[in-house]
């Protein structure tokens, strides 16, 4: 009898565990353009201040993102059935970021610079530094971790949930002991914050990449492409981030 109880207990707890490692996160991705403009080296202080003062009330650009995850895989993309809220529908550039943690593999479909690229490589988890801060995001207590994007020279702050043991996350970030519920790029230039986490069993479609033609490259080639574009744009006095993701 006692044993039965224990087994039952174990079963229910493992069931609970299974639930906590599979589901869908909805993120709100906010871009603060004037902060981004303030980082452009070719602008004068006067131009940066002018942009900051003029656009201070219309600075925030919001979009929704979706992450489907289970213990071994994740897919980060734009939600397909985005309601238009009385407004217009703008096309989002293709973006599908697939991760397989078990096989240490990723496949990213990224439309940028006028082409569709398919990045296939191993995960290349960044070196995370774990901090001492905790905060609540969408009802989950998260810990702070920091890293750096060596190509775009960005400071990355991630907040991962202590009790969702999945190494997935938004954008191209992953590899923490818990699911990343907030990503803060360069002290708030871009903030991707979870608004809702739903635990449910995924259908195979939730993690399926669309069939897309594109140029296949690896991480090294992707990094080289980004690096070249940023350098060229800065030297042509253009904002590189109109054409690539910040």
């Amino acid at each position: 009898m006692k044993k039965l109880l224990i087994i039952l207990c174990l079963l229910t707890s493992s069931a609970a565990m299974a639930q906590k490692t599979e589901g869908i996160v909805t993120y709100e991705r906010k871009t603060y353009w004037t902060k981004l403009i303030a980082r452009l080296t070719f602008l004068s202080q006067e131009q940066k201040d002018r942009a900051a003062q003029t656009w201070k009330n219309d600075d925030e650009y919001k979009e929704k993102m979706k992450l489907a995850f289970n213990a071994n895989e994740s897919l980060y993309a734009y939600p397909t059935d985005e309601p238009t809220d009385g407004g217009y529908s703008w096309r989002n550039s293709d973006l599908f970021l697939y991760r397989n943690f078990e096989k240490d593999k990723k496949t990213d479909i990224i439309e940028m610079l006028g082409k569709t690229y398919i990045v296939e490589d191993s995960l290349h988890t960044p070196s995370w530094k774990i901090g001492n801060q905790i905060k609540d995001i969408a009802g989950y207590i998260c810990m702070k971790a920091e890293t750096e994007d060596p190509i775009k020279k960005q400071k990355i702050t991630a907040w991962f949930a202590q009790d969702i043991p999945v190494p997935a996350g938004p954008e191209r970030y992953n590899g923490l002991p818990g699911l990343i519920l907030e990503l803060n790029i360069n002290d708030g230039d871009v903030i991707i914050e979870a608004t809702n986490v739903t635990f449910k069993s995924l259908t195979p479609d939730d993690l399926k990449l669309p069939k897309t033609k594109g140029k296949k490259i690896n991480d090294a080639a992707y990094d080289a492409l980004i690096k070249q574009h940023v350098a060229e744009s800065i030297s042509a006095h253009r904002n590189p981030y109109w054409a690539i993701r910040y």
């Binding site: 070196s127 995370w128 530094k129 774990i130 901090g131 971790a145 043991p165 590899g175 923490l176 002991p177």
Partner: peptide, 8 residues
């Protein structure tokens, strides 16, 4: 404080 390994 960079992360070397983690477990549950």
């Amino acid at each position: 404080s960079s992360l070397v390994n983690f477990t549950r």
